[in-house]
Write a protein that binds this DNA or RNA. Structure first.
Lengths: 181, 181, 181, 181
DNA sequence: GATGAATGAGGATTCATTCAT
DNA sequence: GATGAATGAATCCTCATTCAT
């Protein structure tokens, strides 16, 4: 990963989160990055593959902290993770939009591998933490928990006055309610 | 709404659920409906508007039963609604994909009105039922409940062996746990 | 075949025979025809298919007379056909170039059907005539005869002072030599 | 001609005869040869020039025997040459395709010198032999003879069941028929 | 009401070629 | 001598939309 690749990824992220992702062309990104169109295709196989890379890059950029949190396997860490995730989603609606844009492109095309691999790691970390917390059926609980978070992230796009703090509490209650006594 | 409009909508639904929605052109739908391309534009203002109509049409077709169920305001009705919704999502992945395709187009373009209006009615029905069930913060619970359902619908697209029956039970437990004693 | 299709074909033929065929773009042809690029793609599926149509069109234009001649099944008709064919090849080198450009694209891509079908009719007509003339192994003789003509057509491109009249006589002698007494 | 040049030429020949020549890029050849793209351009001026070199190289590789045969100036040698040429063409269709690809590029671009020079030597050898055999108009006979061979080589690409042995006999008869008594 | 021919803007992708290292 | 990153021109093709009939 050379410096130029990074510059292109950064320019792409900026462009993809400044307008509807469907309308973003490679041309535009190249211009934003100050390189030629050919350079983008030199560093990335094609647009689809490129968008995947931008996606991964943005996950790293905005969510690498979550790995560390979840690996602590503490209830408090889970709490912080839920709250912070919702906050990021709320504060970066265009980032959310970009993420769903990429994910759905994968799902629409019938290729589930990318999404599967991506979520597997989160499901794994989360269910491991939940297990330690004494939650029953930790795997399924993890899935439902993340479904809540993703769903709320989407809803926050069109419910502007959504109080994510209270929503976060509701979600936490769900988790606690599933703890074995 | 003439018979021709219906024929076009039906053809569109068939086409949109038989391949990635991004790749569906008006041409193709017109061909499937046995009318000319011009006719589609005669009956519908433009593609965006048309897709909204197909969306509404498909909601009516697949989810009109849910209005009736939720209006009964019974715990059993809620239970059936959750289970049946998940089942429909699981059994019609291409329909889900089409729905998210339309919804995201709206959100991507920054137009939240369509989504807002669409969900408002469901939030209303649901929170009213939850209130009757004695659930605390029924509005927010309704939102989280639907977020779960939507999230799980998406996940079922790339987690093929998802046991939606058990998931449904987890979701119900969440609701019950929120009931005031 | 509307008038516009014909105008496009005519413009294409003009363009393809005025410069190296590899360098001809649909853009250029559309401009020459005075229509938009989209119109060309409306009338013809894609560039490959379009080039086949231009090819067929040019054969009709320059060689329809040969069908009539060969169907007469007379020695004199064969003589005239050979002489006239060589003359046309000699006088229209760019047309020859276009023909071989199309044919080879087909052969290069491994699709032999087009070439096969095209030549079959000529082989058929020719061998039938040769049979009537009392030539032995008329089918194979027809093939060799046409191979000569095609080969000479190509050679005339880079042997400018080729005396096609004398060459025609040599070819005729070959045919006569193969007549049963 | 260093060893590296040879390795590149060999890799090019392999690549050009394994897929449609139009689709072969310098990149691909460099990869096959295990060198960088820059190296190809270091050893060869440009792509056109490079393809000419590959062409020459392949002629040397597959047809150097023909020089020796034709120089013997014997009827039997001519016979063997015709038969063997047809056999090579039949057995190496992709090689034929590559040859015509290069030749036509030259002719298409209006540059006849390359083809002229290439064929001159063969015409010379052949007509000299034919003269010794007592053939009338040996130069023109040589041209027609080679036209036959080239034409048949092309035809064998799309007439898979062509009996090249019988065709060879027909061609030989043509030559014999032209011998002065 | 219905048609379908015509449009033209827009975008991904390829690849020979250059040149600093 | 060799490299490979960077370029940018070139081109096919798609498709929503319009409008004369």
């Amino acid at each position: 990963m050379t410096g130029l690749s990074l510059r292109i990824l950064e320019a792409a992220l900026k462009t993809y989160t400044s307008k509807p992702p469907q309308n973003v062309s490679i041309d535009e990104i190249a211009r934003e990055a100050g390189v030629s169109k050919g350079t983008v295709f030199y560093h990335f196989k094609n647009k689809r593959e490129f968008e995947r890379c931008v996606f991964i890059y943005s996950i790293e950029k905005y969510f690498s902290w979550a790995y560390d949190e979840l690996e602590r396997k503490e209830t408090e860490a889970l709490k912080r993770t839920i709250k912070k995730s919702l906050k990021i989603a709320k504060e970066n609606p265009r980032l959310m939009i970009f993420w769903y844009y990429v994910l759905e492109k994968e799902l629409f095309s019938g290729d589930t591998e990318f999404a599967h691999k991506l979520y597997s790691q989160w499901f794994g970390l989360l269910s491991s933490l939940l297990k330690d917390m004494g939650v029953e059926k930790p795997e399924q609980t993890a899935i439902v928990l993340m479904a809540m978070l993703d769903g709320i992230s989407i809803y926050s796009l069109f419910i502007p006055d959504l109080d994510i703090d209270e929503i976060g509490d509701l979600i936490l209650e769900f988790v606690k309610g599933r703890c074995k006594r």
